[in-house]
Amino acid sequence: MDSLFSPLWLSIQLATITTVLLLAIATPIAWWLAQSESRWKPLIQTIVAMPIVLPPTVMGFYLLILLGPAGALGSWWVDLTGSALTFSFAGLVIASCIYSLPFAVQPLSVAFESLGRTKLEAAWTLGASRTDAFFTVAVPLSLRGYLGAVVLSFAHTLGEFGVVLMVGGNIPGETRVVSIAIYDQVESLNYAAAHQLSALLLIVAFGALLAMFFVNRRWRR
């Protein structure tokens, strides 16, 4: 039983860490996208959205090269820590952050855009610095965007398969997340175990989305 559910626990850890990191990464990107009138904006939007349309194996392949001991990021990591990024939990976290980035950026930039400048201008005239106004006005008024970003990044990371397989492989306790474990169980015709894990994921995903839509409705007033 323990070994059956340990991939689930690993997935939850991965999704949690990824979601937290993504909120920090996606916030400035989404803010910039919502405010900027730069001509480079479509380019940045495209890059951020790429993981939505790219086959996970393609993403995984390039990430494998990037994170591998010979890759730009991978070799730097080896110099820093002495161990490789590929086939490690740290590598999975980086890959997940890139893979789930659009799912965090999208709801946030929608929220920031609909907020507009009006309330921020009011805060500035009241003496709030730009940073102060961002944290005391923009963020609290964009909570729905943050809720969407959290739920979507978490759920999306929880369910990723192709990228994990390419970058992380299937090392128990290290990179063997729940989606890989389900695939393994099916491969070895162990349908009962596959059922248990799949049903659990189904319930978690359904519950998370349902909760999000319920809260959204309450906040809409």
Partner: peptide
């Protein structure tokens, strides 16, 4: 300077 806009622009939270 204090600024009163056409719309109140209160902070809803």
């Amino acid at each position: 300077v204090g600024y009163v806009f056409q719309e109140p622009r209160l902070f809803d939270h």
